[in-house]
Simulated assay, not measured.
Amino acid sequence: MAVSIFPLSAIGAGDIAVIRSQDLDPYNQAFAGFSESCASNVKQYTLGGNGASQQRMAQEISEAKPRLVLAIGLMAAKLAKEYLKDIPTLYIMVSNPKKYGLIGNNIAGITLNIPVEAQFKTYKTLVPGLKSIGVIYDANNSGEIIREAGSVAKKLGVQLVAVSVTSQKEVPEALRSMLGKVDAVWMVPDETVVTTDSFKYFLVTTLEKGVPFFAASDIFVEAGALAALTPDYTDVGRQGCQLATGFTDGQVSLAETGARPPRKINLSLNLKTARKIGLAIPKSVIESAKLVYQ
């Protein structure tokens, strides 16, 4: 179902309660995008304190009877799902919403998950002749995305070498087992796999072997990974405004909306890493990147 842009005046004062999981820059960027696009006076909340204080916050929101809750981040979305069941909820800045039960007739949103096909197509432009990609994952966290990746890889003529782990301790051996068999390593945002220690191991090992390392965040690219694709957080907020306006205007159903991917994606590159592994990145790709670390 396509999203149409509806008149911003459709949202009136007090129609939306905004809950931020934390006062973090990415969440603030998303809210700024929402605010600049939606001419709406909203009531803002930021989670904090203990469970009792959060329940009191939920009670206050429930009594205010907003037409819609905008939940920014996972904690806010889970709070709305648990305590504000009767109020339609639109979430943004959430990864893997299905894993946390953020599905239903009264809840929908925009995920942080970038479509695998968009990722793999970008990686193929970065690494000419890319034929195989290795990935480490926990099936309980990332089974769905790996199944999608398998289908996409086959479609694009790329072999996916996926190694499943159940604990962070298994990650080093899993990485060693695939090096020499793959043209690049892809890190998915998996809670079991992605830790400070494991990232350091990924980085050092792939640099030593001269293997391109595609990470899950531009922070990792700044630290030495070759590249990452990330959502444009401000545009996620704008996209959320379009859905919110459509919903309050009666043109968009949350049940039909489901979980949508971000529409604007930013590429970050580390050219120092590219030089270290002997990879020449096309000028056109460099020019298209949002962030380039020299």
Score class of each variant (00 low, 15 high):
Thr248His: 01
Val285Ala: 15
Asp235Ile: 09
Lys200Leu: 12
Ala174Gly: 07
Tyr100Leu: 02
Val236Gln: 11
Lys98Gly: 04
Val285Trp: 05
Ala32Pro: 06
Val42Met: 11
Lys276Gln: 14
Phe199Val: 05
Ala244Thr: 03
Ala39His: 06
Ser288Ala: 15
Leu229Phe: 08
Ser217Asn: 14
Thr248Met: 07
Gln119Ala: 08
Arg147Cys: 10
Val188Trp: 01
Met178Thr: 03
Val188Leu: 14
Ala58Ser: 06
Gln294Leu: 05
Gly150Tyr: 10
Asn105Thr: 13
Cys241Gln: 08
Val165Ile: 05
Ile5Gly: 01
Cys38Pro: 03
Ser21Lys: 07
Thr245Phe: 02
Ala2Phe: 04
Leu8His: 10
Asn28Cys: 03
Leu74Glu: 06
Ala76His: 03
Thr234Phe: 13
Ala174Cys: 05
Arg260His: 07
Asn41Ile: 13
Val236Ala: 10
Arg260Gly: 01
Asn41Arg: 15
Leu79Arg: 11
Lys283Ile: 09
Glu117Tyr: 00
Ala153Val: 00
Thr196Asp: 14
Pro212Leu: 12
Lys121Ser: 12
Cys241Met: 10
Ile265Leu: 10
Thr205Trp: 00
Ala71Arg: 02
Met1Ala: 05
Gly180Asp: 03
Gly237Trp: 05
Gly258Thr: 04
Gln294Lys: 11
Val204Tyr: 13
Ser198Pro: 02
Arg275Pro: 09
Lys99Ser: 02
Arg275Glu: 15
Gln239Ser: 07
Ala32Trp: 00
Ala2Gly: 15
Val116Thr: 14
Asn266Ala: 13
Lys65Ala: 11
Lys154Tyr: 02
Gln29Asn: 12
Glu191Lys: 12
Asp218Tyr: 09
Pro128His: 08
Gly224Ser: 07
Phe31Glu: 09
Pro189Ala: 05
Lys169Cys: 10
Gln59Gly: 15
Met57Asn: 07
Arg238Asp: 08
Lys155Gly: 00
Gly33Phe: 01
Thr234Asn: 11
Ile87Trp: 10
Gln251His: 12
Arg263Ile: 13
Ile136Asn: 02
Gly12Glu: 15
Ala255Trp: 04
Val236Asp: 09
Ile110Tyr: 11
Gly250Thr: 02
Pro26Gly: 05
Ile110Gln: 10
Gly109Met: 13
Pro26Ala: 09
Ile133Leu: 07
